[in-house]
Amino acid sequence: MVMTTLTAACAVIAIAILTIILTYIGYKGVAAINWEFLVETPKPVGEGGGIGNAIVGSAIMTLLASLIGLPIGIGAGVYLAEFGDKWFGSTVRFVADTLIGVPSIIVGIFVYTLVVLPMTRQSGFAGSLSLAIIMIPIVARTTEEMIRLVPKSMREGALALGAPQWRVTWNIVLPAAASGIATGAMLSIARISGETAPLLFTALNSRFYNFYVDQPMSSLTVQIYNFATGPFEVEHQMAWAATLILVGLILVINILVRMFTKKKY
């Protein structure tokens, strides 16, 4: 009884904090949202303007990061689960766990040194690469866990039919683990859409619509950072509104992935 009450109280607190944050963001942000805000580019303070280019920039960089990070992460996870029992597997696992704990700004510095300096300018690509590096260990470890949950008996069933190992992994194990892997991928996407630090000196920012990833690119998070650290109240309001948009987009990603990965069988 005591146990139930205590754990229930913790659950309520956890949910309550989240609800309060979301409500507050909604309350503060909704007033400044209008069509112009969604499609315009930033203008000098007092002249309105919006975050259209930041939304597009975030979308491009998240997409590109996913295109780089998800295949590598999922591939590495499959390796760890299926063949990673030797020393190499444990090394990769240890490094991945360490990388998950590395503050994201360090990834930003790393990419800054490796990509931005040789290219002599910040770019959407450099930003995407930082985000991808953050994704890979998360996706690899969740994929590994999900694949390990697939019962051994299911693999044996396929092996006993004469399926070679790669087909067992590809047609039986991966589909069986698909919804779990997708959840991991979704979590990593949600995680990188909220990252600011690794973008600050890789993608920088831009005041214009930009579709070229070799140019500096605006993102919602960096834009929020700029608005929020500005001196004017109208900028703070725009920061809240942009935050609301960001949270809304992450929510949409969550719902979409859940819809697509609903267990068919």
Binding site: A158, G162, I172
Partner: peptide, 28 residues
Amino acid sequence: VALRRKVGMVFQKSNPFPKSIYENVAYG
């Protein structure tokens, strides 16, 4: 692979694949 095709196996605990009834049988 050829050996296992010639020598089929049924396990203690039924282990259908997470597929349809048809696809389970069609798999092999």
